[in-house]
Write a protein that binds this DNA or RNA. Structure first.
Lengths: 337, 337
DNA sequence: TTGTACGCGTTATCAC
DNA sequence: GTGATAACGCGTACAA
């Protein structure tokens, strides 16, 4: 089963390798129909398959797009990945999936890995949580990649002057907080993520500032920082429900945490939303499956993946025009009171 | 920003390209320390990055692994993908993510796409749902790929004599059905997937045969075939709850469908599990998040991904020794009665 | 241990 | 329209 190459096909068809090449890929130079036919016939007869690597080298450009996420098992990222995957397929690209697992250094390694791979574009869907030095290292790696002709697009927080798809976390968070006030809630608590997590921090800040503006500042002891996971949410709920004055509503910075908060409320022998109301953020599918269904801020995750890919494919590397906006979705977890 | 190649590095270091090559990759032939140092210094000074494509061509083997799933946004697949991703990273491979969206023809296209890519292995995590002709086409494509030295591994149903990681759907399904009988359930209904879906069909068959063996055969009108989605589950519940004699428990063939069934039960103005009990299959994370938490058959999805990858990396392409077994997990959705 | 030279499979440039 | 031929960037026998 030796590998059959273009040379074999050309030889079998009795034409030059150049003609064979033109016949199989359809270059701008055209080929006489009968020859073209002969080549194609020979190719399929021999079971020829073009070598994408060789093509990439000869053409000077690959057809692969690097996607870097935090954790593909997290519905937030898997949904964005679905959008990227779809857009990539439509563009004839094949996506290289990589995970950072939240490690900033790993993120830099991945960028250079994809760089070596000569991926034509890198899409960063993971929210960064490193310090400034980590950011600088990542930026340097990405700029080096760009210098070699690579395209880049990232979501959320901006990094240097890299093309970024802005997401209006603050607007959505503020709107959500406002909606709760309108529903009659007064005593708030927040299940915040880790302070270093940029996105989580932005949401928490927006919530607090909106509430403060409405005369309902959230004291520090009512903001608990845990992991952005179910477990983290559960722990946060436990801590918040142990306070002297029980909060009327616990706002989690992600749906996943909110699900954990629901569990924590049950653990404490309380009911949601009767005893404590809960909100999430993102509107991943699970948000409407749990009981009570979660009030949250809907982010068009799949669309974000698509737009991110489109952004990465813009030759110059332009910036996204309009930021993605969240939409408050009120469900059973926050009844009027 | 011209691309800096190994030749540039060699020239800058004052050595031959061969020596430079040996210095950067660490071939078996060794290089004198001082020269080695000079080369490395020159490389980093010039900002050299090896071209993985060129390396692949020169070495005759790539470092990429193709992963094909149904839909990466589906938690079932994203969890398996996480396992594959992890195992691939440990093996120094980079995974190419592709989605079939349930289209058998697309699946064949993807295989040949990955083939052109010269992926060193292809992992098929999507359950097939085509007819025999589709299977034959897929098998042919995979065999052709194998003939060219590619490794293959698939999960679930076997295809030809390709290496397969067997999953004991039947055993788990039968055990689950038995457990329900032991809990006191007698009137069963099944939210089955599409009949053509191999995995779903296997589960349904096992459930029915186990129940029949216990003297509780499930009539055809109590087996509803809908899509393997939330929506499908919802529709199935609606149909099953409209029957003259309301079933005591609805067994869905996947957790996702079971979640839909829960919704359908609410739609009908009934409660789970008081009025109707529900079971799922797979034990994706959401299964324990919904209310009531789902009784289901736990499949170690992440581990499946890892084992699948390991299987694909076995040189000869051996078969997996032991099949993956599911474990029945009884939760609130099926109280004893 | 180091250097020379060729091959990997394909595309693109150039004459014909 | 077609065919030599030179890249593309790197690994590796082979010789020195």
């Amino acid at each position: 089963m030796a590998r059959v190459t273009l040379a074999d096909v050309a030889h079998a068809a009795g034409v030059s390798q150049a003609t064979a090449s033109r016949a199989v890929n359809g270059s701008n130079r055209t080929v006489r129909p009968d020859l073209r036919e002969r080549v194609l016939a020979a190719a399929s007869a021999l079971g020829y398959t073009p070598d994408a690597n060789a093509q990439a080298m000869a053409r000077g450009r690959t057809t692969s797009l690097g996607l870097v996420v935090h954790d593909i098992a997290d519905p937030f990222f898997s949904t964005i990945a679905a959008g990227v995957s779809q857009a990539a397929e439509e563009a004839g690209l094949i996506v290289s999936l990589t995970e950072t697992q939240g490690d900033p250094r790993r993120e830099v390694e991945i960028v250079s890995l994809l760089d070596r791979q000569r991926a034509m574009a890198i899409v960063l869907a993971g929210t960064r949580l490193g310090d400034d030095a980590d950011d600088a290292a990542l930026l340097a790696a990405l700029e080096a990649y760009r210098g070699r002709g690579g395209q880049v697009a990232l979501v959320g927080q901006r990094l240097g002057d890299l093309p970024v798809l802005a997401v209006d976390h603050r607007g959505g968070a503020a709107e959500l907080a406002g909606a709760l006030v309108d529903l009659g809630y007064r005593r708030f608590a927040i299940a915040a993520g880790r302070p270093r997590h940029r996105t989580a921090a932005a949401r928490v800040a927006a919530i607090r500032s909106e509430l403060a503006a409405r005369g309902l500042p959230v004291p520090d002891d009512r903001v608990v920082h845990t992991d952005l996971t179910r477990t983290g949410g559960r722990a946060a709920a436990a801590a918040l429900l142990a306070l002297a004055e029980r909060p009327e509503v616990i706002m989690a910075v992600t749906d996943l945490m909110a699900v954990g908060v629901l569990g924590g409320i049950r653990d404490a022998g309380l009911r949601a939303p009767e005893d404590v109301a809960v909100t999430g953020f993102d509107d991943i599918e699970i948000a409407s499956d749990v009981t009570p269904a979660l009030t949250t801020v809907r982010l068009p995750l799949r669309e974000i993946g698509q737009r991110l890919t489109a952004l990465a494919l813009i030759p110059g590397g332009a910036d996204a025009l309009e930021p993605v906006r969240g939409e408050v979705v009120v469900r059973e977890s926050t009844p009027a009171r």
